[in-house]
Design a protein around this nucleic acid. Structure first.
Length: 198
DNA sequence: ACGGAGATGGACT
DNA sequence: GTCCATCTCCGTT
């Protein structure tokens, strides 16, 4: 099977996970503006047992079934994770954003991470955003943003994604932290990025 | 009402 | 590598 038909069989999520690499997340809060480049993603296609939508739609995973571009934000232990839905309505699938590279508003990110890490070592450098929970802390992404439509967002919206100029070099690896479908190459990283999680 | 699981992060050995 | 903090949702009672 060639790569195109393989990706087609895995759904839109895989293409989107690659396409999001190099794009810029723009976060606007009363505190100011933060920008960060996406350097690591994971695809969770429809029909994948590791996908939160695998067992059908529930109140929690509702946003994964929304139209392409809606975000699915959920809590895991003490962390919050950010996903972008990629399917047509009724197809639960999406992309987990696993790491970003700070571009603007680093001071705000440091403050947000420090606030969320009271009593622990102050996060800095790559440690600011090199994990799915860390980037949500740094960008103040909370559960309230669950269901927000990224693609309808305009200038000044709480969260936007801006297209990249050039397609970056990409490395595919197995996904991290899951208990099923561990061997699928559905984690995508910008090659040699220092800002990836591992 | 209750128990368990979870796409994690941080501290520590 | 190991441990565990601490929360939400979900399936079952």
């Amino acid at each position: 099977m060639d790569r195109q038909s393989l990706e087609a069989s895995l759904g839109e999520a895989t293409r989107a996970a690659r396409a999001l690499l190099g794009c810029t997340l723009v976060r606007t809060t009363p505190a100011g503006l933060r920008r960060a480049r996406i350097v690591e993603t994971e695809a969770y296609p429809a029909g994948d047992p590791a996908c939160h939508a695998f067992r059908g739609e529930t109140r929690r995973n509702r946003s994964l079934f929304a139209r392409r571009g809606h975000i699915y934000v959920y809590r895991i232990h003490r962390s919050v994770c950010l996903n972008v839905a990629t399917g047509r309505p009724g197809y639960g699938e999406g992309v987990l954003i696993r790491a970003v590279e700070p571009v603007e508003g680093v001071d705000l990110m440091e403050r947000a991470r420090t606030r969320a890490s009271v009593g622990r070592q102050m996060p800095s450098g790559v440690n600011l955003t090199n994990g799915p929970g860390k980037l949500c802390q740094a960008l103040d992404i909370e559960l309230e943003l669950d269901g927000f439509d990224l693609l309808a967002a305009r200038d000044g919206a709480p969260l936007r994604v801006l297209p990249r100029r050039l397609a970056p070099p990409i490395v595919a690896t197995p996904r991290i932290g899951i208990s099923v479908a561990k061997n699928e190459l559905l984690r995508f990283v910008i090659r040699d990025s220092a800002w990836a999680s591992r």
